[in-house]
Amino acid sequence: MTPSKTAEPSARGRTERPTVPLMPPTVRKTVTVLHVVSSVGWLGLMLCLLTLGANALLTDDADTLRFSYRAADLLGDALIIPLALLALLTGLLLALGTRWGLFKHTWVATKFWLTLVAAAASIFELRARLHEAAHVVATHPTGPISAMDLGSLRSTLVVAPVVALAIYAANVTLSVVKPWGRRDKAKAKAS
Rank of each mutant, 00 (worst) to 15 (best):
L47C: 11
P9N: 02
L92E: 03
V163T: 08
V36F: 06
F67Y: 11
L165W: 06
A134G: 02
M148H: 08
L52V: 05
T32R: 05
R182Y: 05
T59Q: 03
L92V: 12
A95S: 09
K185M: 15
T6K: 07
L45K: 00
M1R: 11
A118L: 12
D61T: 08
V136Y: 04
H131E: 08
E132F: 04
K111P: 01
M46Y: 14
R12H: 12
G151I: 06
A188W: 11
L157V: 10
F124M: 02
V163L: 15
W180M: 08
V176I: 09
T6L: 13
K189D: 15
L43G: 13
G91V: 00
T64I: 10
L96Y: 07
A138H: 04
S4I: 09
P179I: 09
T156E: 15
P21Q: 06
H35N: 13
G181I: 06
T64S: 07
R17C: 12
A147L: 09
W113L: 14
I81F: 14
T15D: 08
L153C: 03
G181N: 10
A147T: 09
L102K: 00
L96C: 03
Y69V: 01
R14D: 10
V176M: 07
P18W: 02
V136W: 05
P161L: 07
T106V: 14
G41D: 03
A62T: 08
D184K: 11
R70S: 12
I167L: 12
T173E: 12
W107G: 00
L52S: 01
A72C: 08
A54N: 08
R127V: 10
W100T: 01
Y69N: 03
R183A: 12
V33L: 15
I80N: 04
V108S: 02
T90G: 01
N55F: 14
P3R: 11
L116Y: 04
L88G: 02
T173L: 13
R14T: 07
R183S: 14
